[in-house]
Structure formats: structure tokens, C-alpha cells
Simulated assay, not measured.
Amino acid sequence: MTGNGSRAERWVATRWPAIRARGRWRFVLVRGVAIWGGVMFAAMAALMAYRFGIHHPRLPLLVGIALPLCAIGGLAWGLLTWFLNERIHHALTTSKDIP
């Protein structure tokens, strides 16, 4: 595939098979919960510390609430991304089989 299709289709066609071979839950936990959820948690914690100050008495509670919410968001992002990439991959592989 040289230059055909969208950027997402080219990415799925070239990189997705190797990522897919490692497994769904590894993808969801590493890229979803750890990376996406971790970045969101760090950003939210920094913004809350900036907004309320690091000595605010409820900052630990707010950060404690943000942690599981970001993990759940990362889990949802990982699963959604997995299923969308699987759908694109399936469409690309079945369209190659049709003459």
C-alpha cells in the first residue's frame, strides 16, 4: 500500500498486526490505562495543584478521586481504540481478498 488510504488506514495496515499479536489486554493496559490514563492523571493533578495550591487541604482527596477516574477513562480509551483499529484492519484485509 503506497500512499493509498487515510493516515489511520496506513498505520493500521503497517503497524497494527504487530501490536495485535501482543494481545488486546496488553494494548488496553499499557497504551490505555498506563499511558493515556497516566498522562491524563498527571495533567489533572498538575492543574488541580495550580488551581487550588499544593497546600489546599482537599487536594489529596481530589487527586485520589482523579486517579481511578483516569484509569477508567484509559481503560475505555484503550478498548475503544482496540475495537476501532480491529474494524479498520478487518475492512482492509477483506477488501484485499475481493478481486
Rank of each mutant, 00 (worst) to 15 (best):
M1C: 05
G3D: 11
N4C: 14
N4Q: 14
S6M: 06
S6C: 04
S6A: 12
A8F: 11
A8V: 10
R10H: 01
W11H: 09
W11P: 04
W11D: 06
A13E: 05
T14I: 13
T14Q: 12
W16L: 00
P17N: 05
P17E: 04
A18D: 00
A18G: 00
I19T: 00
I19E: 10
R22F: 00
R24I: 00
R24V: 00
R24A: 10
R24T: 07
R26Q: 12
V28E: 01
V28L: 03
V28H: 10
L29W: 15
L29Y: 00
V30T: 13
R31G: 14
R31M: 12
R31E: 15
G32C: 09
G32K: 04
I35F: 13
W36V: 15
W36E: 13
G37A: 10
G37W: 05
G37H: 04
G38L: 09
V39L: 15
M40P: 10
M40T: 15
A42E: 02
A42D: 10
M44C: 07
M44K: 14
M44G: 15
M44H: 11
A45C: 08
A45G: 08
A46S: 06
L47K: 10
L47N: 10
M48F: 05
M48L: 10
A49Q: 01
A49N: 03
Y50E: 12
R51W: 15
R51N: 11
R51F: 11
G53M: 04
G53K: 09
I54W: 07
I54E: 06
H55A: 14
P57R: 04
P57E: 11
R58D: 12
L59M: 06
P60E: 00
V63Y: 07
V63K: 13
G64E: 10
I65M: 08
A66G: 11
A66L: 06
L67R: 02
L67T: 11
L69W: 02
I72T: 09
I72A: 12
G73P: 03
G73N: 09
L75Q: 05
A76F: 13
A76G: 12
W77G: 06
G78E: 05
L79Y: 13
L80P: 04
T81L: 08
F83Y: 14
N85E: 08
I88D: 02
H89E: 11
H90R: 02
T93E: 12
T93P: 03
T93Y: 00
T94S: 02
T94F: 02
P99G: 14
P99L: 08
